[in-house]
Every structure is written in structure tokens, then in C-alpha cells.
């Protein structure tokens, strides 16, 4: 039994939605009725069957449509995919990681045959059947990172590890929450996180860096991050902010349920074997407010989290303009009852 891939859009007419089964597997990021930064990193071990954590690299019903959206973004703006010259080897590492993971987790959709460095890759959902020589860039239509990430949901940052720091030296970023790869490429861990408020003072990044630089081969880690997006738009890039920024002013009490989305990033961290680099897949999951409130627990809790969020964080996440409207709408689902511990929808 395979995945039933939806045909939908993340722009213009915005036909994206989650099937009922997908709502239940949504990675709701709040384990209690409040939110503050923490070094919430844990081992990336397989989670329950059917959850987004079942496999190391999750593929879901939005796969084919998300890949189509990525192709549109790259055609408009090739600067969204960049790799500094020393990162090609890490690109091959990433290609190996994603191909072997997909083929093992979803054999009905993906097949990889390896005979030494002669590789044969079949991606059935996207209709790809390619033979190439591992390590030889001239045998692929794109560089190794771009080739495989055009076939993988989520943004990918590849971080070179040098001098006790991590350097954002390659990546493909088309579904980002408002940061620019083109501007940040080449920066170190502290520099690209510089605009984040509050967390530096709490020592969050110092501790996180220490943890990340010690991640070892075969022992990946993960964390969740979140923000909100108006309309199910994947490409909320700063590059196009002047085109989508007005969306934020269109929220009304009548359209909150369909227009406002909780956006959760499942970030995972993997040591790459040949290059000793770290890859950081940032997988984005969207859920409409109408879909979210089908879980009474999630509705109550998200209302409380959003209500009590510090102003600096609301500003940084770009929520300030529409937060009051969304809170008013969510309050009808919060009767003040206690919520159960943990992330699940009950």
C-alpha cells in the first residue's frame, strides 16, 4: 500500500489541504500550554508507525506537489540553491543518505541499485529513472545536492565543521520561514542565527552548537520549531516578501480557519561520512486552523501558547499584525479545561 499523493498548489489558488489521516499525524510542537526557546534536541530515533517520525526521512501525501512548487521557485530564482566549491563531496554524502533512506523506507516508491560506483535510481512518484556514476558530477543533470533535493521535501542546509563552529556553506532553501540562503551562505552558526531575539542571551546557541558539533555518524538528532503562515504558502522567502507580505493584512475573523496556518519545522541533524559535514534538513508541515481545531486539545493549547507568547518572539516570527484576530477566533475553542501532557491530539 503506497502513499496517495495529492495534486494541489501552494500559491495562487492555494488548494493545499491535509487529509483527515494527515491531520492526526501532524507534528504538533507544544508539549505544554506555553512556549519558550529551549535546547529541545533529542535523538532522531524512529517514532510510532504512521507518525512523521516513523522514518528518518519522511515522505507524505504532499510530496509530488511540493516538488513541483520547488521546481517553480528554482526556475524563478536559481540563487535559492547554492553550494560553495568545497562542498561538492558533502553533496554526494547527502545524495547517498537520501537515496538509501527513501529506498529502504518506501520500497514501493523508490528503488536504488548499487554496483560499486554505478548507481541506478528509480523515483516512481516523480517518474525518474537515472543511471549515474557516484562521485562523477558529469553523470547527473544537476550537482549531487541539487539533484537529490529536487526530489526531497524540505529545505536542506549543509554545514561544514571547522574550528569548533558550523558554517552554512551549501543549501537549497525554497520553503523557508523568512531567511535568505543567498545572504547567509558562508556564515557561521552564531552569525546566521544573529537576528533571532532572546535566545543568544539565554546561551541557547552556545549549548546547541556544542551538541551539534559532537553529533556522530549513525546517531542523528532532531528538534521542532514553529511559526505561522498566512495561506498555505511554502515559499515565504525574504526575496519575495514584498509580494507576499500583504497576505498578513488580509486576516479577518471570517477567514482565520482557512487562511491561517501553523507551520512546524522538523529539523534533523546528520553527520555526513565522507565530508565530515553536518546536514540539516528542515522539513515544513502546514496545518490550517480549521484542521487544527479538529483536536480539542490542540485548539486549547495553541490558543494559550499564542496568547502568552512574548512580544519579541511574536515580532520576530511576524505574527504581530494578525495575532489578535487569530486569538479571538481560537478563544471560542478554549473552555479553560486542562490539557493532557504530551504532543498527541488525544
Amino acid at each position: 500500500m503506497g502513499i496517495n499523493f495529492r495534486k494541489e498548489t501552494f500559491r495562487d489558488d492555494f488548494t493545499f489541504r491535509n487529509s483527515p489521516e494527515h491531520i492526526r499525524r501532524f507534528p504538533f510542537p507544544f508539549h505544554e500550554d506555553a512556549y519558550m526557546y529551549a535546547v529541545n534536541i533529542e535523538p532522531h530515533v524512529p517514532g510510532p508507525k504512521g507518525s512523521v517520525l516513523e522514518h528518518g526521512i519522511d515522505v507524505d501525501e504532499h510530496y509530488v506537489s511540493e516538488m513541483h512548487d520547488r521546481a517553480l521557485v528554482l526556475a524563478e530564482d536559481p540563487l535559492r540553491c547554492q553550494s560553495l566549491p568545497h562542498m561538492t563531496l558533502a553533496g554526494w554524502d547527502l545524495l547517498e543518505l537520501l537515496m538509501t533512506s527513501k529506498a529502504e523506507s518506501y520500497p514501493e516508491h523508490f528503488t536504488l541499485n548499487r554496483d560499486g560506483d554505478k548507481w541506478h535510481w528509480i523515483n516512481r512518484p516523480l517518474g525518474i529513472d537515472d543511471r549515474f556514476t557516484f562521485g562523477d558530477v558529469s553523470t547527473l543533470p544537476y550537482g549531487p545536492m541539487e539533484y537529490i533535493t529536487r526530489q526531497s521535501q524540505g529545505d536542506f542546509c549543509i554545514l561544514d565543521q571547522r574550528d569548533g563552529n558550523l558554517w552554512m556553506d551549501a543549501g537549497i532553501v525554497t520553503t523557508q520561514a523568512d531567511w535568505s540562503l543567498d545572504f547567509d551562505i558562508g556564515m557561521n552558526f552564531f552569525e546566521w542565527h544573529a537576528p533571532v531575539p532572546l535566545a543568544h542571551e539565554k546561551g541557547i546557541f552556545t549549548r546547541a552548537l556544542k551538541f551539534l558539533t559532537n553529533i556522530q555518524q549513525g546517531a542523528p538528532a532532531r528538534r521542532l520549531n514553529w511559526t505561522m503562515t498566512i495561506n498555505p504558502r511554502l515559499d515565504t522567502s525574504p526575496e519575495n516578501y514584498h509580494k507576499w507580505g500583504t497576505d498578513r493584512a488580509t486576516v479577518t475573523p471570517e477567514n482565520v480557519g482557512q487562511k491561517v496556518h501553523l507551520r512546524v519545522e522538523l529539523q534533523s541533524f546528520w553527520r555526513l561520512p565522507r565530508s565530515n559535514a553536518l546536514v540539516f534538513p528542515i522539513r515544513c508541515y502546514l496545518i490550517k486552523m480549521d484542521e487544527l481545531v479538529t483536536s480539542p486539545k490542540w485548539a486549547r493549547r495553541f490558543h494559550r501558547v499564542l496568547r502568552d507568547l512574548p512580544t519579541e518572539l511574536a515580532d520576530y516570527k511576524g505574527l504581530s499584525r494578525y495575532r489578535p484576530t487569530v486569538l479571538e477566533w481560537l478563544s471560542q475553542y478554549d473552555d479553560g479545561a486542562a490539557t493532557s501532557p504530551g504532543f498527541g491530539p488525544d
Binding site: 535568505s180 545572504f183 551562505i185 558562508g186 525574504p238 516578501y241 514584498h242 507576499w244 507580505g245 500583504t246 498578513r248 493584512a249 499584525r321
Partner: peptide, 13 residues
């Protein structure tokens, strides 16, 4: 790498 500060549209919303 770009030798520049970042400028972002101030009235996009």
C-alpha cells in the same frame, strides 16, 4: 561574502 548589510522591504505588509 557579499560585503553588505541586508535591506528588507519595510512596508511589504
Amino acid at each position: 561574502r557579499i560585503a553588505a548589510f541586508q535591506g528588507v522591504c519595510i512596508n511589504a505588509e
